[in-house]
């Protein structure tokens, strides 16, 4: 059991999602939220510094636009600050915080769809880029990646959420289950259906 806990902490660390209490002088996220609620500005700052990248990148996966993801991540910290009174010290911080990000992203997407009634422009899609590939490979994969970008933005929110967390945040099923407070089996089902829809949007058997 201890091995599992250590493994999970390491995995969450890699994903930038751990409850940090793993060293001398390190305060847990939950303690920081409680201190923040009591007016400790430094606690708020620590929390922001600890999770800013995760907040930004998660929002990016959900809304597909870097400027908006930046604003959403900052707004999420403000909401967390203002809502810290509703936070219970025995609840894990990250699922609570993630829900704030996801709700902000949902609202943003709703407003955007009302305002524009169309999909996000490809010009706005700055969040995905090819990884360490050669220029030749990049060229060959270009069309396929563009198709994936477009298709991801057409997916329903829940599908994009699960794909973002698994594929682009590199979270395991257990981590996603914990974050979204859903059973592991539900994570598997949601991933299955999200991939099916994504494959369909990309034109079925694109291999």
């Amino acid at each position: 059991m201890r091995e599992f806990a250590r493994y999970m902490t390491q995995r969450l660390d890699n994903a930038g999602l751990s409850e940090r209490d793993d060293g001398p002088g390190m305060v847990t996220d939950s303690a920081l939220v409680m201190n923040m609620h009591n007016g400790d500005k430094n606690a708020f700052r620590q929390l922001v510094e600890r999770h800013k990248r995760m907040a930004f990148q998660t929002a990016l996966g959900l809304v597909g636009n870097r400027d908006d993801a930046y604003d959403i991540s900052q707004e999420a910290f403000l909401r967390a600050y203002r809502s810290s009174g509703t936070y219970k010290s025995d609840q894990p911080f990250l699922p609570w915080f993630y829900t704030i990000i996801a709700n902000l992203a949902r609202t943003w997407l709703k407003k955007r769809s009302v305002a524009k009634s169309r999909d996000v422009d490809l010009d706005d899609v700055e969040y995905l880029m090819t990884s360490d590939t050669t220029p030749e490979e990049e060229y060959i994969r270009g069309e396929e990646i563009d198709l994936l970008r477009k298709s991801l933005l057409k997916l329903p929110f829940d599908d994009r959420e699960i794909i973002t967390l698994h594929h682009f945040r590199n979270m395991s099923y257990d981590e996603i289950a914990e974050l979204l407070a859903i059973p592991r089996g539900t994570v598997m089902s949601r991933l299955y259906y999200a991939r099916k829809r994504l494959a369909r949007l990309m034109g079925g058997d694109h291999g």
Partner: peptide, 21 residues
């Protein structure tokens, strides 16, 4: 058939990552 499709999808998504600020 579905396994082949999913593996292909995983390969494509594996070639992409977030751009950092």
């Amino acid at each position: 058939r579905e396994l082949k499709e999913f593996n292909r999808l995983k390969t494509v998504t594996g070639q992409m990552k977030y751009a950092d600020l």
